[in-house]
């Protein structure tokens, strides 16, 4: 039996040599279980060793293999070539982010945003080891759990038209993670994070397109985090003179 093959068209761009990106098509053999990532690895191993892309875990955990597949942001390790056959694939780096080389994007902007939201628990008072852990009920955990599932794959940034228009917008994942810490009962850092929420670059750049939540591979639903914080920011706006700083729930 002859092996089935599929055409994979990839965007190529080497900033040291190329004036602008171009496309190159490779014919790749595949089986039922061949992922898109494995297709790219086949190209790199067998056809053109210079093709550059990121990957690590191959199981939707590390978040490094996100790319545009036929214009849709997707993790290549959990997308399968069989689903595109007999058509072909066009693989491009994630939209809205600068290309570092070929399919690898520059994540600096997101990483800075991630740092800016203070993505760690800021307890009211530190507790010594002898005092034991901070305890939490299942209901308290439920309030933030979904948002803590984010793997920083940036598919949501590639999906967000507002981020595409103006990258000053904090964006879906950073807002989801901000909300993850703000809604954690062990955390007391809300006052530090609210100025980010309240800014135009915070929740107010969002027009509730909702595509971020559609493409998220982990069910994080960043759009809900943004919109819950529109409520929080509105309460904060009107009640800031009454309630102590950052008290609006």
């Amino acid at each position: 039996m002859t092996q089935k093959t599929i055409d994979i068209e990839v965007l190529r761009y080497n900033p040291e040599k190329d004036y602008k990106p171009s496309y190159q098509t490779f014919e790749v053999p595949f089986a039922d279980e061949t992922s898109v990532l494995q297709g790219l690895q086949y190209i790199k191993d067998q056809l053109d060793g210079s093709l550059t892309f990121r990957w690590s875990c191959r199981m939707e955990i590390c978040g490094s293999c996100g790319m545009m597949i036929n214009g849709v942001p997707n993790l290549t390790c959990s997308s399968f070539l069989r689903d595109y056959y007999p058509g072909k694939l066009r693989i491009e780096p994630l939209s809205h982010l600068p290309i570092e080389r070929d399919l690898a994007v520059d994540q600096t902007d997101f990483l800075q945003k991630l740092e800016s939201i203070h993505p760690y628990i800021i307890p009211k008072e530190n507790q010594s080891v002898e005092e034991g852990p901070f305890k939490q009920t299942p209901a308290q955990r439920e309030r933030f759990y979904q948002y803590s599932e984010c793997i920083n794959c940036l598919l949501c940034y590639a999906a967000c038209p507002q981020y595409g228009l103006d990258s000053d917008f904090l964006g879906p994942a950073a807002m989801a993670l901000l909300h993850r810490y703000n809604s954690d009962s062990r955390d007391d850092g809300k006052a530090e994070r609210m100025p980010i929420v309240n800014a135009q670059e915070g929740v107010w750049a969002c027009t509730l397109v909702g595509y971020c939540s559609e493409v998220c591979p982990k069910g994080v639903d960043p759009a809900s985090a943004v919109n819950r914080n529109k409520v929080n920011s509105t309460l904060d706006y009107f009640f800031r003179f009454m309630a102590p700083k950052g008290a609006a729930e």
């Binding site: 800075q112 800016s116 309240n198 800014a199 135009q200 915070g202 107010w204 509105t234 706006y237």
Partner: peptide
């Protein structure tokens, strides 16, 4: 604050109105 972007002064938006 750990980087430039968090030091950037953020202005409260009037959008809540």
């Amino acid at each position: 604050s750990l980087n430039q972007s968090s030091q950037r002064s953020l202005k409260r938006s009037n959008e809540p109105v």
